[in-house]
């Protein structure tokens, strides 16, 4: 077993069957093979419709794979996510597998600081420590301190995205999935994110992401993984 290998995709395929739209079948992914190692940052590239976001969601077990295998190194052994129980998936998400989407899922009445701190609390951190660490991250991402105690529902798109990144990166996780986390950020903040990702890689995390911005892609990618839309079935 290659001790660096963190994620191993084998002949992965995903189709959607839409029962209420004339039983339409959408084939989005087929025959994906990808290996992700600790310390590298692989960026998915390809035109829109190539299934990049779908691939990240399948790996995160947000979508169920139709074919093939998604193996994740979790707790020093391989976990087959395609057939894992919900409890195994939840445990992997808590401790091994992080996912940062483009949009923050706002929870009514919960302040930004607590939204960011939550993943640390879930792995058993002290509340005071978790909040302090959340504050440090928000500070680095230039979220003004006056916003920390407010629910982010009313924040601008860029502010929400930075809260989302802080939440996604606060707990050290061996595998990070990033779906255009910097789409609405200015250059200064993109640089901060690039720096945070570099630190995560140095700490041993494997990163798999989608970055449309070329400057960002060049800055963080150690390798590209090209994808193309499937021919219509």
């Amino acid at each position: 077993m290659n001790t660096n290998l963190m994620l191993d995709l084998h002949d992965l395929g995903k189709s959607f069957e839409l029962h209420h739209q004339h039983d339409a079948h959408l084939h989005v992914l087929d025959g994906i093979r990808l290996q992700l190692h600790a310390g590298e940052c692989v960026v998915l590239s390809g035109p829109s419709g190539a299934g990049k976001s779908t691939l990240l969601r399948v790996i995160y077990a947000n979508y169920r794979p139709s074919r093939g295998s998604v193996r994740l190194r979790h707790d020093g052994r391989w976990l087959e996510l395609a057939s894992a129980t919900p409890h195994e998936v939840l445990d992997a998400r808590r401790r091994t597998l992080g996912y940062v989407s483009q949009f923050l899922r706002v929870i009514p009445r919960v302040p930004a600081l607590d939204i960011v701190a939550e993943p640390l609390l879930q792995i058993g951190a002290e509340p005071a420590q978790a909040r302090q660490r959340a504050g440090e991250l928000l500070h680095r991402l230039n979220v003004p301190e006056r916003l920390w105690q407010l629910p982010p529902g009313t924040f601008s798109g860029g502010e929400q995205q930075r809260v989302n990144i802080a939440r996604g990166l606060i707990a050290p996780r061996p595998v990070l999935l990033l779906d255009e986390p910097t789409a609405s950020l200015d250059a200064a903040n993109r640089a901060v994110v690039a720096q945070l990702l570099a630190e995560a890689r140095v700490a041993g995390s494997a990163v798999l992401g989608i970055f449309h911005d070329e400057d960002m892609r060049d800055r963080v990618a150690t390798r590209l993984f090209p994808m193309q839309p499937l021919e219509p079935a």
């Binding site: 959607f16 069957e17 839409l18 029962h19 209420h20 969601r57 077990a61 947000n62 979508y63 169920r64 919900p86 998936v89 939840l90």
Partner: peptide, 17 residues
């Protein structure tokens, strides 16, 4: 299954509905 899986990738016709 997982709540997000069921809501984002529903399999059964009734769930999709």
């Amino acid at each position: 299954g997982l709540t997000d899986q069921i809501l984002d990738d529903p399999q059964h016709p009734y769930t999709q509905l």
